[in-house]
Design a protein around this nucleic acid. Structure first.
Lengths: 225, 225
DNA sequence: ACCTGAACACCGTTCAAGT
DNA sequence: ACCTGAACACCGTTCAAGT
């Protein structure tokens, strides 16, 4: 196929920031961030590598752009009067579904310092703050609880993403933990706890963590009365 | 200075895995992971880049080695009968001091899937599991609570490290949040909560999160009785 | 305004050779 | 056994030039 020269003629696909980001996200989702190079991306787009620099200032801007379009997917119901516990869980699940959809980008999603400037993220945070306020927490505890939840979700997302890329069968993890490392003589408690679990119990999920966080907030709110 | 040729003579510093890792960790701590290249590391060590491959199989092995020697620093008191709440906090603080000492390596520390194979990490986990068992949690909740705590600590560490590298003055964050983004018309709850806080209250710390987690565990343990 | 193409200064790693 | 040095196949990005 012949390379286009100069500005594209009529029917051809224009190179736009959006088309660049969409293509880049597909590469990342399919093959990981390591596979995303400016040169590779240019090939995929059918342009010279330097053409990209006209729409994005560099590779860093490209990755920030990717987190941006992913965070755009974050949709939460408006603030209303459903029980605050349910709203906290809704927030968590919405955030988790984002990181679950783009496991290869998780490292950048949880690291991106600009994320809070994203409007969708701010709207989600507003919902979370409102829920925690209705739980009866004083201001400084609201911030503490929100930070706990977000940090937990980030940590969970990281674990989930590196687990899926590093391990062949996630269901075998329990056995690996037990047989290879946690010999009863050396680690009695871990061995006892883990052997008493069936695989079913061990379904790693955010719900177990959310149960504890919600119960903790309830308890601290009661003490404030 | 003249390059050494062939195997080093008597008085010269031998190239060892340990010396390589120590030097690499210094580069990472001082200048970040981006500054750590095989070639740069070799220069620092006074050898040819390829000499390193004799002691470590490649760059990935180098980074895994770095997380390994950092996790070796994790020291916790043996399992005893101090209140479980205090033990959970001790675990959290010990882990946090590790990530705080090597902020530039945090991304790799929280991502390293091999970490749990580390003996020091296992010993720390044994302490944590023992504390949670004494809290009165059933086995599946022990695992859930331990995962919550570790995920939280990983997420917290990430936030702390990217905050320190991305922001000039961490104390100014509150103002930035308020004035630039959270206009009262659009985000009433966040604006109200954040403006009622003094900088003192906002000292981002793990203790606020630990308070909630501990209270949550207490509450769930009570329900199990 | 938008894209090209050569060039620069880097990478990690393979492979054959030195001592 | 341990280290060297050239070479290969990549990077991101600057800069001058084309249409």
């Amino acid at each position: 196929m012949a390379r286009r020269l100069g500005r594209p003629k009529g029917g051809q696909a224009l190179l736009t920031r959006d088309r660049i980001l969409t293509t880049a996200l597909r590469i990342v989702d399919d093959e990981g961030v390591a596979a995303l190079s400016m040169r590779r991306l240019a090939t995929e787009l059918g342009v010279d590598p330097m053409a990209i620099y006209h729409h994005l200032s560099g590779k860093h801007a490209l990755l920030v752009g990717l987190t941006e379009i992913v965070f755009q997917q974050l949709r939460l119901p408006p603030v209303d009067d459903t029980p605050w516990q349910e709203q906290v869980r809704t927030f968590a699940r919405a955030y988790r579904s984002l990181t679950q959809t783009h496991p290869n980008l998780v490292l950048y999603l949880v690291t991106d310092a600009e994320a809070r400037k994203n409007e969708r993220v701010s709207m989600a945070n507003e919902l979370l703050y409102a829920a925690l306020a209705r739980a009866g927490l004083p201001p400084e505890m609201i911030v503490g609880a929100a930070d706990l939840l977000v940090d937990y979700l980030n940590g969970f997302a990281l674990g989930e993403s590196s687990a899926s890329t590093a391990r062949a069968s996630p269901r075998a993890e329990l056995d690996i933990r037990l047989e290879e490392h946690y010999r009863p003589e050396q680690f009695p408690v871990m061995h006892r706890v883990l052997s008493s679990l069936s695989e079913r119990d061990r379904a790693a999920d955010i719900e177990a963590g959310l149960d504890i966080i919600v119960a903790g907030i309830e308890a601290l709110a009661r003490r404030e009365l």
